[in-house]
Structures are given as C-alpha cells and as structure tokens.
C-alpha cells in the first residue's frame, strides 16, 4: 500500500508541471498588456517599461517560464497588483474557508447521497426509488446560487435558524464557525447529494446484475450479505471516481455560494481580482485551484487501492 501511494504521488508531479505550463501559456496569450491595464492609456513609455521590468515581463519567454516555475516551486506566486501584498498571503488568509466549505459539502453529499442511491437501487421502481430519484433530480437541476438564496430566505430570514451572512470567525471558536458554515455547506451539499445519489444508484444497479451476485445468491447467503458484502464494495469503485471528479464542479459552485452568503473564501478573491484586473492574483488563484484538483485526484487514486485489490496488485 505504501509503495502504491508513493507511486501515485510521484505520478502526480508531471501532471502538476503540465498544469503549471498551461497556466503560464494561458496568462501570456490573453490579449491586452497588463502594464497598460494597470497604468492606464495615458502612461508614458518610460513608466510602462519600468513597470514591465518590475514584474519581469520584459525578459524573453523562456526566461519568464523558468522564473515562473522556480517561483511557484518555492511557493512564491508573486505580488498582488491591486493590494501589493503577496498572493500567497492573500490566498492563505481565505483558503481555509473555501476548503472547509468544500470538504463539508462533500461529506454531506457522500453521507446522504450514497445511502439514498444504494437503497433506491435495491428498491428499484418502488415508492422509495421514485422519491429518492426526485430528490436527486432536484439537487441536480438547481443552480448553486438559487438553492443558496432559497435556503437563505427560508432558513435564515424567515425562520432565523442560521445566520444570514457569514464572516471571519477564528478557529478558537469552532462551534460558531461550524454554525456559520452550516447553511452554505448544506446548499452545496444538496447538489452533491444529487450527483452522488445518481451515481450510486446506477453503479449499484449495474453491480446487482453481475454474475458474481448470482454466485452469491446461489450460495444461499442472506440478502443483506449479497447486497452489502458482495454488491456495495464493487459499486463503490465508480462512486469514488465520480465523487473525485465532482470536486471540480464543487469548486466552481463554491464561488457562487461564497458570494451569495458573503463568505470569505477564494470566490470573493476571484471576483475581486477580475474586477481590478489583478493578473498575478488570478494566476495564483488558478495555480491554487489546479493544485487542489490534482490533490483530489491523487486522493481518489489512492482510495481505489483501498477498495479494489486489482489496482494495487497490477501496479
């Protein structure tokens, strides 16, 4: 298992390099001169050259690339053009908020979505199945911001169960922090429940039709053993894959949720840097997102090894 984990870890390094290269290229091919964007049309040629030199874009491309890669590897994402603080500092201030939101909504999605999907597969075409499919369809079809607004109107404003807006709360007060996290996590979680339940249902249905389920039945095993011992572990493999993939979707949706709830997080930072054309900040944010997506894939890969013996041994 350790060897397998290390191998996966090593394999994700080239991925990360490729992603960084793509980001470097993308930022360079965006039309418009960042110097002009920051200094305005009326800036003199001298000032523009001075600025270009200060952020290092006067050098040839290959040198820029090496500098960029070197900086990123050292954990240096440059200075924000808007605030002058380092990008790393700005990002790490709000990153925990986005991470806790994402992780919480994945947990909600998995904890409720998997049982919902599994039972709706077992009771296929019964009342429970129809109900569960309706719930997951709701989760799938509501946009994140719409659910957020609905929750806010009813659960916060009307019934006053949750705070309307979130704010910076230090970790020293975990209960209040959790309380503020609840509603945003729930509105993202509902979407995850939809996706996870749908995946679990179809995966479980497929597994229940497999030959080894027939074998298990022919052994005279009790129904629960057939479904859970033989069925569920096999169904888990595709569920894991897709949950890993949905993380990307979740990160996108978290931007909207954070804005609706006025939560601190990467979402607010993205919108802010877009408005102020803060290229370095934007570049740093993309690097951060890319890093977490690669990390999520790594975790998914490793968890395969835990569930599916074929993966571990073939490696």
């Amino acid at each position: 298992m350790l060897v397998f984990t290390l191998k996966r870890l090593l394999a994700s390094i080239p991925t990360l390099f490729a992603v960084l290269t793509v980001i470097f290229v993308l930022v360079r091919i965006v039309p418009g001169d960042p110097a002009l964007a920051v200094l305005g049309d009326s800036a003199s040629e001298e000032v523009i050259q001075e600025f270009r030199k200060s952020i290092g874009i006067d050098k040839p491309l290959w040198e820029q690339y090496l500098v960029f890669m070197g900086d990123v590897l050292q954990g240096n994402l440059g200075l924000s053009m808007a605030t002058g603080k380092t990008v790393v500092e700005e990002v790490s201030n709000v990153l925990p908020y986005t991470l806790e939101l994402t992780v919480a909504s994945i947990i909600i999605g998995v904890v409720f979505g998997i049982p919902l999907g599994i039972f709706s597969a077992i009771y296929r075409n019964h009342f429970f199945d129809y109900l569960a499919r309706m719930v997951s369809l709701l989760g799938l079809s509501f946009p994140a911001f719409y659910i957020s607004i609905l929750f806010m109107i009813y659960l916060s404003v009307e019934w006053d169960w949750f705070p309307v807006f979130s704010e910076y709360i230090p970790w020293s007060d975990p209960l209040t922090r959790l309380y503020h996290l609840a509603l945003p996590a729930l509105s993202l979680g509902v979407i995850m429940i939809g996706y996870v339940a749908r995946t679990s249902r179809s995966s479980m249905l497929e597994v229940l039709g497999e030959d080894y389920i027939r074998t298990a039945k022919s052994k005279g095993l009790p129904r629960n053993m057939v479904v859970f011992k033989h069925g569920f572990r096999n169904a888990l493999i595709p569920i894991l894959t897709l949950t890993g993939l949905y993380l990307g979707l979740l990160m996108g949706n978290s931007v909207l949720t954070e804005i609706v709830f006025n939560r601190p997080g990467l979402g607010g930072l993205i919108v802010g840097s877009l408005e102020s054309r803060d290229y370095t900040m934007l570049q740093g944010l993309i690097v951060t997102y890319a890093f977490f997506i690669v990390l999520a894939n790594l975790i998914t890969d490793i968890s395969y090894g835990l569930v599916d013996p074929r993966v571990k041994n073939n490696d």
Partner: peptide
C-alpha cells in the same frame, strides 16, 4: 427466498459458465 437459502449453497449448489465474471473481484 429466505427458506430457499437453507438449501442453496448447502444441499444444492451450482457452477456457472463464466469463471471470469462469476467470482467477486474485491473479495479474496
């Protein structure tokens, strides 16, 4: 089904045609 399970796998058992898919891949 419950009563059948007393016979299946005990007094009566079955071998299937497809050895490649008839065993559960995640159990030893």
């Amino acid at each position: 089904e419950k009563e059948l399970n007393d016979y299946r796998g005990d007094d009566l058992s079955m071998i299937f045609q497809e050895p490649m898919t008839s065993l559960n891949p995640v159990l030893t």
